[in-house]
Design a protein around this nucleic acid. Sequence first.
DNA 1: TTTTTTGTTATGTTATAACATAACATTTTT
DNA 2: AAAAATGTTATGTTATAACATAACAAAAAA
Lengths: 128, 128
Amino acid sequence: MSMRGEKNQAEVLAIMRMSRGPLSAYEILEKLRKAHPKIAPPTIYRALAALTECGRVHRLESLNAFMACKRGRHQHDSILSICDDCGTVEENVDSELLEELSSLIGKSGFKPKRHVIEVHGLCASCRS
Amino acid sequence: MSMRGEKNQAEVLAIMRMSRGPLSAYEILEKLRKAHPKIAPPTIYRALAALTECGRVHRLESLNAFMACKRGRHQHDSILSICDDCGTVEENVDSELLEELSSLIGKSGFKPKRHVIEVHGLCASCRS
DNA sequence: TTTTTTGTTATGTTATAACATAACATTTTT
DNA sequence: AAAAATGTTATGTTATAACATAACAAAAAA
């Protein structure tokens, strides 16, 4: 295993952790270019793929964006609630709910591998 | 209310119903261009927005694709299982599970509006 | 040196902004 | 009432923004 990729991943992760909300790949790119002007999209996407793979970053499918896992790392699929007003995302883990979902879907013989659960709405403070 | 948009929507929907799996907007565009060569992306996206709005079409956020609702129309958010092997998508409706999800997320004061639930895996026949 | 990782260029894919026009409805004028 | 003007909404059109990856070159590690 090499160290080079890990450096990119660490920098990408650091940028994401400084952000209060999700970032698009190109937003990350822009920020990273302040330090490394020549960096290109594939570098970001590779870093994001690795970070997503190991659970340190969540991809928000319904936003085409990414965020650092607030708990450091999630081994399992997480349940994300996305405030459509302020952009804040909360993470929840609930393996029981995932189980129920799997068993509902499993009735037809389907074998679940990855759960995408993203709930859009308004967070507590934006509701008022 | 006009009739004009409804014609595009009907054609888009007809194309989607002829497909066994989800289609990207550009795949629909390509098909529609056989009849209407000059049609442009916004026309497709507008039709898809209207059809999604009224529940006749589901958007698959994790695929950036669309499919006709197999039951004609869903009033509520549906639970989609996507076979990563053959591309088949199954629809499920389970308002109880949606309730549980809402209440889990609602603990923090979050007010859910739209649920994106997409489960990736293998369908019964691809599993064997 | 062979393999693997990373960098680089180019391009593919998805989606929408911005503006122009068309279609039809409504009101006003004649 | 018929014709003209105006408003309103849908659609067409161009261009471009935004997201993502293929393909290959270069460098590093094994």
